[in-house]
């Protein structure tokens, strides 16, 4: 498999603080890399750096060419970024939001709207929707971006259980189609259900990359989150305490 994304000695700083340093990793076509870490560790900042939206030191290579060699427009043809929900002040409708993401692929809008369960919402303004519905609209907008690399910041945030499951299935399907995906997730079970590799950021400037199978043990994850993660059967779960 060809490496879509390759990071060498990457360091990300924000506001004078080093969030992570010397990260080396790669993400191949058809591979999912999940970024895990506590709040404020720099997960979203790492995604922003990979999307070229904030500066970083070290080398980021996209399809074997340095990220900085791409113009903004060229980059948008290789990378899709899904982050915070867009503002709603100016009354954009769901249809208009999807048209902006689709560009020349507007014929697919109906399909992705059906897939993400937002077809009945197409003519409603974004401001009238719940956070979960807006998140589904953002996922539909993402599906319209047929680019090699997706960078996703908590794609299952705000979603109910049905749509969380649907989202993970959709991402798995995208992986089988050869999409490279790097994403931040907070739900451990979701992360371990889909990740081929993990990037663990501890919030003290350290970042570790490796195969999901190698890094997903209770001790490593307990240390990372400074919270108890236990094994139940074959599954790693947060220790919420036993049933009373």
């Amino acid at each position: 498999m060809a490496a879509v994304l390759m990071l060498s000695n990457l360091s990300v700083q924000r506001g004078g603080t080093t969030l992570l340093s010397d990260l080396c990793c790669s993400c191949n076509a058809g591979e999912v890399v999940v970024i895990l870490g506590p709040n404020g560790a720099g997960k979203s900042s790492l995604l922003l750096a990979l999307a070229g939206l904030i500066p970083a030191t070290g080398l980021i290579e996209l399809n074997a060419a340095p990220l900085h060699s791409y113009s903004r427009h060229e980059l948008s043809r290789h990378v899709a970024w899904q982050g915070e929900l867009p503002p709603t002040e100016f009354g954009l409708t769901v249809q208009q939001r999807l048209e902006l993401a689709a560009g020349e692929q507007s014929a697919n809008i109906e399909n992705v709207a059906t897939c993400m369960d937002v077809k009945p919402l197409l003519h409603r303004p974004l401001g009238e929707l719940s956070s979960g519905e807006r998140q589904r609209v953002e996922l539909a907008a993402l599906m319209l971006r047929d680019v090699p690399l997706w960078l996703l910041d908590e794609p299952t945030a705000h979603l109910d259980l049905k749509h969380q499951i649907h989202c993970i299935h959709m991402l798995k399907e995208q992986r089988t189609r050869g999409r490279a995906i790097v994403m931040v997730l907070h739900d451990l079970q979701q992360a371990l259900a889909i990740a081929d590799a993990l990037i663990l950021i501890d919030g003290k400037g350290n970042a570790e990359y490796g195969a999901a199978a190698r890094l997903s043990d209770s001790q490593t994850l307990s240390q990372l989150f400074d919270a108890s993660v236990i094994t139940q059967g074959d599954v790693l779960v947060p220790d919420y305490g036993g049933q009373s």
Partner: peptide
């Protein structure tokens, strides 16, 4: 301008300088 309605980051990610 339409892209900018989505916020600066979304606009930038969609290829706008």
């Amino acid at each position: 301008l339409d892209m900018l309605l989505l916020g600066e980051r979304h606009a930038e990610a969609l290829g706008i300088n």
